[in-house]
Design a protein around this nucleic acid. Structure first.
Lengths: 341, 341
DNA sequence: CTGTTAGCGCCTTCAT
DNA sequence: ATGAAGGCGCTAACAG
């Protein structure tokens, strides 16, 4: 291990004090321009690199923002992360990223690691099975800003970045009904997560508004994976009376379900109309193209990170507030059965 | 800001020294079991959390591994990152992630930030236009392990995790030739990156082995984006004599190109057979399904991170070595023109 | 404008 | 088995 240059080495060489070197290296106003140049040049020449561990300790701040997400490898989440990284990096913070792998246990242990690492703020999208947020209480107690995005949790101290899932789902469902669907299956995930319960509620609301009965046989709850879509198709095919519409809470599952039904001779959208959620890249590649709800992960990441950064840079002035991002219904062939739309 | 508990607070409360508390909190052998329990209990009760900034400074290690990638939001890269995160997290390291956004300039500035943050190792996949790795020299000089993956760079001190792009491209091209293609266009990106030049070389080799002429009019170089695929389709349609096969260096671009050609009345694969690279999720959704090269990003991330972690945990014993991961040709309808395959 | 001093919280000799 | 003391590198008072 090569010996690292410190500000003391620079100070010695220049016969000045370490304090002056420290000041010269930042843009402290009270340093002579000449000595400043001397210092910067010497630092450059000697290959000095500032030791963040030391300055972090001294300043009692880590310069790190933490992120905990269920999984990194989904199209949506990688967009979110990209957006977060951009904002955080531009603001000269660093990013600690970890994935809960959809379990509350891992989420809690990640949170603890983040806490010990003194992250200055934490961005979280919750795991499937997270029932309470006791594991985030230490952050709230310490007033370390905690922002939820997408898979949010209701808590007075924590702003949320999300879309209006209720409204979006109601729109999708209404659209299917407009297309003549009378018996619409809804496939979704753990209703503990508000993103899913809201979508479910929006769906039910639309049915109700059109005097369509909802009953439990129309609801399929799984993990919205690709495999789950295949299984759901199996369930649908076994139904005593086939549905004429399916609204799935994500595109991944919607597509595999739709393709499986196609293989079994079901015509999309004539026999069964389909709609998904997320506007995944695959949605406009699959045939027929999938009707879905579009909302940009990148923008959600940006919004969450911007909120955090603004807050950190101006702690006591800026009040953090929740943000509802725009989403839009994108109608494609998978649900188009008449010309009225 | 609430006052944080330190080992001194615990020491005071227990009327023992901070040194003993420090030892008790880890599994130092020379502490009485009883006092250890006392210490751990008191820490728990008082809400102590270890200050990593202080211990990092003292120990002269950051416990952080850095990652620099071109972009986070691609299906492949998010798989890689997921794999890296898993391994790094399990090994109790933290992950700093940043994206170069495909420019060498940003890559260099990210590298500098990583250096100042004292990352203990750096995992890198290079930007499109990175011509040399001078910006990584400080790592090499300091013997901070530097591992390249996917978009690698040849350097004696830096192991590489990659696939055999030459072989894979030769396989794809040979397959297209076997299907009767005689005039195969190759669409790729900056040949500065070995992943692309190797694929190009493999392609040329296959042509040569089958006595097919290569000439520059068969090569289209762009950024392999979706839009570039549309543009490439335009170029192809304008060619004096249409090709009967297209091999694209990624699936994203392959698919948009293929779909654009379809819209212009070209039959796939009868008129033009198609092959991509990466086995993106969209490849088996598009119609016709896209022939491609499959290799798992998740495994590449795991492999790179495992190499790094093993090295860090056993610095002077383990020699780092490059790893060539397996890849395989996946034949789908987009290239199937006869029954011989 | 620059120097002196005193920690930030932890860990690790060295001593007991 | 425990304590005392010094220092990791930096920076913010406080003096000059």
């Amino acid at each position: 291990m090569m010996k690292e240059i410190t500000i003391y080495d620079i100070a010695d060489k220049l016969k000045i004090s370490a304090a002056t070197v420290s000041r010269g290296l930042k843009d402290h106003p009270l340093v002579n321009h000449k000595t400043k140049k001397l210092i910067v040049d010497a630092a450059e020449e000697m290959g000095y690199r500032s030791n963040y561990m030391a300055s972090n300790l001294r300043n009692q701040k880590s310069n790190v923002i933490g992120v905990i997400v269920p999984r990194l490898n989904s199209s949506f989440m990688s967009d979110v992360i990209a957006g977060i990284e951009k904002v955080v990096n531009d603001a000269n913070y660093n990013l600690f990223i970890s994935q809960s792998l959809e379990t509350m246990k891992k989420e809690a242990s990640n949170a603890k690691a983040m806490l010990n690492n003194r992250v200055e703020g934490l961005l979280v999208s919750l795991a499937y099975d997270t029932a309470d947020i006791a594991h985030f209480e230490p952050f709230i107690k310490r007033k370390i800003p905690l922002v939820f995005f997408d898979r949010v949790f209701e808590h007075a101290a924590c702003p949320q970045i999300y879309i209006d899932n209720y409204k979006a789902a109601r729109e999708v469902t209404t659209h299917l009904i407009d297309q003549g669907c009378k018996r619409i299956v809804h496939i979704t995930a753990n209703l503990l997560r508000s993103v899913y319960s809201e979508r479910f509620n929006g769906y039910k609301k639309a049915l109700e508004e059109h005097q369509l009965e909802f009953d439990d046989s129309l609801l399929i709850v799984n993990d919205l994976s690709s495999q789950a879509g295949v299984a759901a198709a199996g369930q649908i095919l076994k139904m005593p009376v086939l549905p004429d519409g399916v609204f799935v809470a994500n595109d991944l599952c919607a597509i595999s379900c739709m393709q499986t039904l196609k293989k079994h001779g079901i015509n999309i959208p004539q026999d069964i109309a389909f709609a998904g959620f997320n506007n995944d890249p695959t949605a406009c590649v699959v045939e027929p193209n999938l009707t879905t709800i579009n909302y940009k992960g990148y923008e959600m990441g940006e919004a969450a990170a911007k909120l955090m950064v603004a807050h950190l840079n101006n702690y006591d002035v800026k009040q953090m507030h929740s943000v509802v991002l725009r989403s839009e219904l994108i109608i494609r062939e998978s649900s188009l059965r008449n010309k009225s739309s």
